[in-house]
Amino acid sequence: MRLLEIKDLQITFGGLDALSGLNFHIDKGEIVSVIGPNGAGKTTFFNAISGLVTPTDGDMFFEGESIVGLDPSTVTSLGIARTFQNVRLFPNMTILENVMVAQHCRTRQLLYGALFQTRAFKQEEREIRERAEEILGFFGHRLVGYRMDQPAFALSYANRRRLEIARAMATQPQLLLLDEPVAGMNPIETAELTALIGRLRSEWGFTIVMIEHDMKVVKDVSDRVVVLDHGVPIAQGSYDEVSNNPDVVEAYLGRPVEAR
C-alpha cells in the first residue's frame, strides 16, 4: 500500500529550481534513503513534505489524501514526523518535556481540564508522561533517569540527535523523516544508531525516509535508495543498483576525464 506518493513535485526559489519533476513513493514498512551531493534539494524535499515549504507545482498524497498546502502542524497530526539536519530541540525545556510536548497533536485537554484538574486531564497527563518515558527508554540508559529533568542544551551532540528522534517518535507518526541522523557521530555511535533505525521499523512499525551521507548506514538499513542531483531524481533502486549506476557516480565524482 502506498503510504506517501509524490507526483511531479516542483519547488522554485527566486528562479532557481530547488526541486523539479520529482516523483517519489514509499510503501508502508519501507526504509528509503535519499542521497545526493550537497545542494541537491534533499532537505527542501523534506521541508516540502512536512509543510514548511509549499511546492510551486505538483502534488503529494499521504494515505491517498493530498497534503499540499497544509500547515506543518496538520501534516504532523496526519502522521508524518521529522528531525532536522541541524538538530533543533527546545534547548531550555527538559528532556522529558521535549518529548511530552511533541505529543500535543495526539492529546486533547485544553483550558478546562487543566484548570479544574478533571479526571480526564490527569489521566491524559499520566499517559503523556508514561509514553514519553517509554520512548526515552528505547534509547537505553542515555536519556532516562536523572537526565530526564536536565535541560536539552546540556546534552552531548549524539544525545541531542537521539532526543530529536525520540521527539519525532512521540508525535506517533506513521512516516518518520530523518534528516542525516548520524551526521557528526563517531563510528561506534553510528553503528549503534544504524541498528536503532532498523528497530524503529521492526518494533515501532514506522516507515522511514532518511537523508544520509554515510554510505555504510545507507547500505545497512535501506530497502531502496533515491539519488537526487540538482533537484532532479537521477536514479532509484536497491543500494547495489544505485551504487553502480554511472549517472550517480558522475554526480558524486564528476565525469571521467576521457568522456569530456
Partner: peptide, 12 residues
C-alpha cells in the same frame, strides 16, 4: 523556544 519547530512537532 522555537516557533517553527513547535509547528513542525504538531503544535497549532
Amino acid at each position: 523556544e522555537d516557533e517553527q519547530v513547535a509547528e513542525a512537532m504538531g503544535i497549532n
